[in-house]
Design a protein around this nucleic acid. Sequence first.
DNA 1: AGCATAAATAATAA
DNA 2: TTATTATTTATGCT
Lengths: 219, 219
Amino acid sequence: NTQAAATTVTQSPVVIAPQPSVLKSATTLSSTVPITCGDIAKVGQLMNKPQQVVSGEESINLEEIREFAKNFKIRRLSLGLTQTQVGQALTATEGPAYSQSAICRFEKLDITPKSAQKLKPVLEKWLAEAEHWNQKGQQNLMEFVGGEPSKKRKRRTSFTPQAIEVLNSYFEKNALPTGQEITEIARELNYDREVVRVWFCNRRQTLKNTSKINAFQVQ
Amino acid sequence: NTQAAATTVTQSPVVIAPQPSVLKSATTLSSTVPITCGDIAKVGQLMNKPQQVVSGEESINLEEIREFAKNFKIRRLSLGLTQTQVGQALTATEGPAYSQSAICRFEKLDITPKSAQKLKPVLEKWLAEAEHWNQKGQQNLMEFVGGEPSKKRKRRTSFTPQAIEVLNSYFEKNALPTGQEITEIARELNYDREVVRVWFCNRRQTLKNTSKINAFQVQ
DNA sequence: AGCATAAATAATAA
DNA sequence: TTATTATTTATGCT
């Protein structure tokens, strides 16, 4: 399963700054939203319709849902979480299972008002809790979400994790190996010499670039 | 060029709600022990340097840059903009060219403090302006950014079983066809060239994900 | 109801 | 920087 593997934690959570801007939704553009398929209309298609929809016994405030969906996305991104992570976490904690698709469809309002109404409080509660844990540190958030605490981003192909490990250990000992040494390392790992050489170049670059900035990172 | 094609505007801008979250407006520590070394620091020296770096005549507040980088990302996402869009827009308005990679590196702080210091005001100014236009409506923002007003995501292609079969047989022979070959395959199958190119990308991806189980099984 | 995967976006080897 | 991979999002389908 592709989705299951997408649990890397590459982006540290960020804080939402109070935004002065008031954004308009792109979904309110056309006045004639063709409701394809003879199905039930989706929330996103009902934006120009009456704000309240009566479904069964309760009335649903579409505007409220729309607002929440927008904010949910921003807050999710602020926490550095993916749709997949949210879905998996929800599946783990609550009763029903939520796929990445479900989260995606909620954010895009590609669901029926009834479904949205049902899902909204679940997401709201979960998100608030996630934000709560996040304030106590990213570790807590990741634990809450259920992902690996600090899983390393998978390297781009060429190198296997094992090779990376070896390379890093060499790098630790000597960041600037001689041509001779590069040749030997390349042979040991069975990689192209040039590839190894470039790896050291990029590795030095990255270290140089990040170490200054992150030198006094608060964590 | 792959990047050039990535100008679709799929995600509608979202509103940042005034967050109740406690915002540390400036975590800047007051301790500043500027180091005076005119040239670029060597790799091993960079791990434990102070917050302020003196480069030439000006001192660089690393914490400030770090803070800005975080907020920049959130604000960019709030506007519904991609790194590619920002880079292209900047390239159009400002003097130097900024690639998607450049924006990515800034957000990840994978650049030298000097570069970051130089880029920060440019991004800050541009972003503020973008937010300004956005307040006047998404159309204005898109115009400012330079993208098509309401470009939609490409419709998902459905390959016929026959086409899949042919594609797979090509893939079996060569998983990484050249541009020339892609063009030919696309013509033979009467599909868009880009669609075929992406198919091979995704196919390689899928194979990689499942390679542990069926290394050479096609399908 | 959600899987499989096409398309889009971000990260990175070269 | 550029080209490509890695990762995420979106959607066609039954």
